[in-house]
Structures are given as C-alpha cells and as structure tokens.
Design a protein around this nucleic acid. Sequence first.
DNA 1: CCTCTATCTTGACGGTGTCAGGATTATGGA
DNA 2: TCCATAATCCTGACACCGTCAAGATAGAGG
Lengths: 197, 197
Amino acid sequence: MLTDKPYHHGDLRKSLLAAAEAELAERGIEAFSLRAVAKRAGVSHAAPAHHFGDGNGLLTALAAEGFRQFLAAQTAREAVAAPDAASQLVAAGLGYIDFAMQRPALFRLLWGSARPDFGDAELGRAAAASYQHLVDQVTAAGGRTVADESAVWAMAHGLADLLSAGRMLSIGSSAPGDRDAVIAGMLRRCLPGGQGG
Amino acid sequence: MLTDKPYHHGDLRKSLLAAAEAELAERGIEAFSLRAVAKRAGVSHAAPAHHFGDGNGLLTALAAEGFRQFLAAQTAREAVAAPDAASQLVAAGLGYIDFAMQRPALFRLLWGSARPDFGDAELGRAAAASYQHLVDQVTAAGGRTVADESAVWAMAHGLADLLSAGRMLSIGSSAPGDRDAVIAGMLRRCLPGGQGG
DNA sequence: CCTCTATCTTGACGGTGTCAGGATTATGGA
DNA sequence: TCCATAATCCTGACACCGTCAAGATAGAGG
C-alpha cells in the first residue's frame, strides 16, 4: 500500500529510537515523554510498547546503542593518534569527551540516569565492551594497579561530565584545538606510572 | 490550637525541603514528584506552591542548601588534614567525594540536573562560593594555569560521579580507609606543578 | 474587635505512562 | 490460492502528575 499513512510503519523500532534521541536532546532526560516520542515518530501513543515494553525499555535500547557509539568515538580518536600506548590512551580520553560534548543528552543517559535497565543483556554487553576497552588501553600503557586504571577514567569522565553540562567554562569556551591540547595535558597527568596510589 | 492537624503547619518550608530530599533519595530525580513530597510532609498537594512557586522552585531552594552542605563537607575534611596547601587541596577533594557518596541524590541534583534554576540569586551565591573555594585552594597550592585548576576539579568530580553512581566498583567496594588512601593518591597526581597543560 | 494578609485546602484542567481490547496487515502452511 | 495465526498498531480508559483558581482558616496590626 502506498497511502499516506500505512497502518504498518516499516521500521518503527528504528524510528522510535531516533525520535527518542531527538526528544532527549531537545527536552532533557527529566522532561522525557514517551507520548512525545510517539507523536514525533507519527504513531499512536501506545505503539512504542510493542517494541520496547515501556519507557525505560526504550531508554535501555537507546543506551545500548549509545554505548556502542560512545566506544566508536574513542576508537575514532585512536585511529588518528600516534601508535604508542600512552598516546592511544590519551586519544581514547579525548574521544570520551568528544562524545559527551557532541551528544550531551545521550551521555547523560549512559552515565547519569537510573532509567535504563543495566541488567539488560544487550545493554550489559555494550557497557562491558566499553569498560573492557578502557582496561585494555590502560594495561597496554603499563597500568598495573587499580589506581592506574581509575585515574585516567576519572579524569576523562570528570572533564566529560563538567564540559558537557557547561559547568567548566574556562576550558569549555576555548577553541576546539586549544581545548584538546589542554585536555590532553591533563589526561597525561593521570597516565600509569604517576606518583601515588 | 493543639489539635492533631493545625491548619497552619509552623515551618512548612523547612519540612518540605526535608521531605524533598528524602523523596529524592528514595525515588531519584527522574521520579521526583511534588505531590509525593507534599504527602510526605502531611500537607495538601498544592501547599508547596505558596513557598516555592513550582517544583523547580523547590528543587532550586534544595540545591542552594545542598551547595552549602557540599562546601561544608569539604571544609570538614580540611579541618582534620595537614595544614600545608597541597594536603588541604587533597582534603577538599576527599570532602567533595564524601558528599557525593553519602548523599548521591543531592549530588545529582547539584551537578546532573536541569531542574534547579541556576539563575536564581541564592543558588548562584551558594554555587559561586563553592567554586571560589576551589579556586582559592588551587591558588594557595601554587596553581597558576587553567589546567592546574581544572585538573584537580575534574579528578575529584569524576571520582565523585562514578563512585556515587556505583559505576566504579573496584574502588567503591573497598573499605573507607583504603579507599581514602587510593583516592588521595589519585588526587595528588593532579596537583599544580604536574606535567602538561 | 475587626480587617488584612499569609497560609493552606479543595477542585479542576490538560498531560503522562500503562493496560485492555479491537482493528489492520503480514506470514506461512494447506 | 486461501485462510488461520501472529505481528503490528490504534482507541479508550485509568490513575497519577504539575499547575492554576477559588475558597477556608489562622495570625498580625490597627
């Protein structure tokens, strides 16, 4: 059928995920509305239930996809960085922060929301893959202790959270090139082999 | 009148703030309900409006009070730390993280929510005081650059956010004493005078 | 004592998530 | 080809939510 509004959507699941991310970006996680997502996708208010169960189910699926893109942002930076382990680890941190600044709403969903079900298998795999990547990078850079691993992570995450929320204006308002250099310097302070810990 | 339910509450404003924090801790910011706060305070659903305007107004007032306690958590750690500037700065970081772990919901309200009105005068003062304290501490410790200031902040904030959300189990699950030592070591990596930046 | 104001309640409105039941379309075996 | 079955989507309903309007009650000041 080629009417204006076919009863079956085609790929509603994908459309709903895209609409959900757009709604998230425009209204924020705290004003997220399942009915608004359905309306944006041009579908009835109860349609999402057949694909995701409830609102948290939709956000769980979106978070799983988000974690994959989060990891991709890190590997994208690594691909254009120097091949030594330290540079690769710094590049991963820059990718971590890229993602947070370019898609702050999604970053919030991944790290600052209780709505996704982190017991979900698919989300669990995506999140674990992203964590494993961190561990591998730190190990390759000579990290041995828990502090080695946690330090770079916390530094990258702290910068990502503060910058994406617009709370760290001193760095956030500078030009991207300068910003990268400053951030890289801070990440390097946390590389394995630092004092303490 | 000494009946069971006097028409006037006495200090409803304070009761509502306490009820709001309890609701926040139990249900999270994303499920925060103004009516539930009113019910917990034993008052009608529209009563909060007379003291705070709307829901965001209540959360704005709660955030202002939260920032004061946030700063107090830092100075409490400083009071029992060595007097040199570096130790004081590390102590402030430990207090930052104490607050996040002991009152995660409130920490989320301060740093991860769009609901408080950060243009509000009282909240602005409280937040600025907390930021100024950081700047003073870093300056006293010999910090000169933006990176000096941002590095300790980001490290403390990253640890606080990840630990309070239960995402950094390697450190979060260890005993408080050991945890403090590890965290202090990581904070020291970010002290002014570090390489880079 | 009486008025004025602050405080709190009740009632209503539209919006939201979720469930039940019905309508429409695709699928796969006869 | 035809039809039963499943998948997909819609309509309607319910309780809860935030907010506004209007009324009731209590305190404060002349």
